[in-house]
Simulated scan of single mutants.
Amino acid sequence: MAIAFPRTITDARVFIKQYVAVLCFAFLAFVCLIAALKFTAASFDYYQVRNILASWQEQGNEQTVGEYQLAKTAIESAIDSQPSHALYQDLLGQVYEWGALAGYEDKEQALSAAKAHYLKATQLRPLWPVTWASLAMIKWRQQEFDDEMLTYLQHANALGPKKPEVHLLYVQLGMALYASNHPMLLSIRETFYQRISLGLRDSKSRAKVLALIKQYQADKRVCRWLRNEPLSVQRMIPHCPSRKDLAKYLR
């Protein structure tokens, strides 16, 4: 097909404008294509890591170091593409926490890295309670029972009144603090009791709460702590006495 070249100055100006418009459109389309490819690749990395983490959380530390490195590389790649994505930062925090617990990384360094990524996630998405709960768990793993830990717990509690992950954090921590007679229990005791009740009512956390009660052989204590809760909640606890028997026990 022959190209019609401009014959006059006016035609030349029109030709140049059309040519520039086509180039701009082509460049914009190319940029959009690159962005779409990066987004697709990052999404693929995210789901790949999420599946590996879910498997680890279900099976404990049975995942291999190769799978750990694969997950770490994938989520770091996703963050390189979208560094301001809060979920990716949170997921990398989970990966580092996994590395610390499984012995694939230096424990203290990995926990510090996990904390840094969780904090980055809270900056990007401050209203997500599970990330605050994860930060409190990191402080527990670091054995740092201080005001910073209480702040993380308070954020998780305030932002996630119905979150099963927050129920479980409080029940796990409260049971451990009670068993070790730790003074921090006094700071969270009321919320700890509330979260036991909420965790039992929530079908997503009930089995794990009951498992923790069994692990700590705390059925009688929990019955006593929840004596003002509805009978429907108390009856979920094995060997929980009736209110009449409980009243005798408390005398």
Rank of each mutant, 00 (worst) to 15 (best):
V222K: 00
E105N: 10
V31L: 15
K163D: 15
L150F: 13
L111P: 00
F27Y: 09
P241I: 11
Q57W: 13
Q69N: 12
M137E: 08
T131Q: 09
L231R: 12
E105I: 10
L246D: 09
G93W: 10
S187L: 08
S112P: 01
L198M: 04
Q234F: 00
T10D: 15
Y19I: 09
L37R: 03
Q172D: 03
E58M: 11
S180Q: 11
M1A: 14
Q143A: 12
L119W: 00
Y249F: 03
Y68C: 07
S112A: 04
M1T: 14
I9P: 11
S84F: 11
A21S: 00
I3S: 12
I138M: 11
C24K: 05
R243N: 08
Q94D: 15
D11F: 06
A54C: 10
L186M: 06
L111Q: 02
A179P: 08
V233Y: 05
R227F: 01
A54V: 09
Q109E: 14
L153I: 13
P83Q: 02
A41D: 08
T131P: 10
L127A: 09
N228K: 07
Q143Y: 07
K208E: 02
L135G: 11
K204I: 06
S242I: 01
Y170S: 03
S77G: 15
S81V: 03
Y249E: 04
A121L: 07
E76Q: 15
Y88G: 10
T73W: 10
E105G: 09
D45W: 02
I237E: 03
S55T: 15
L185Q: 13
V31Q: 15
G199T: 05
R235A: 11
Y96L: 13
W128S: 03
A133W: 05
A247G: 12
V31A: 13
A113Q: 00
L111H: 01
Q109H: 06
V166L: 01
L169V: 12
K139P: 01
A74F: 07
S77W: 04
A41S: 13
A41N: 08
Q172N: 11
Y193G: 05
A41E: 07
L28S: 14
Q82A: 13
A12C: 08
T131D: 09
M1E: 14
F39K: 13
E97I: 02
L87Y: 00
V14S: 06
R195Y: 00
S77Y: 06
L111K: 02
S205A: 09
I75M: 04
L231D: 13
V130D: 12
M149A: 08
S43A: 12
Q89N: 15
R50N: 10
D245I: 01
A74T: 08
A158M: 04
P161L: 07
A42L: 12
S112L: 01
E190Y: 13
F192M: 01
K120T: 05
P164L: 11
Y88L: 15
I79D: 11
V65S: 07
L124C: 04
P6G: 07
S197R: 02
Y88C: 14
L135F: 10
A110F: 00
A156T: 06
F30W: 14
A35Q: 04
L173Q: 06
R13C: 11
Q154P: 06
L37M: 05
F44A: 15
E190T: 02
Y19P: 05
S232A: 00
R7N: 14
L91A: 06
A207F: 09
R189D: 02
Y47V: 08
E229K: 03
A4H: 13
C32K: 10
E108N: 01
K220W: 04
V209P: 11
L23D: 08
A29M: 10
S81T: 07
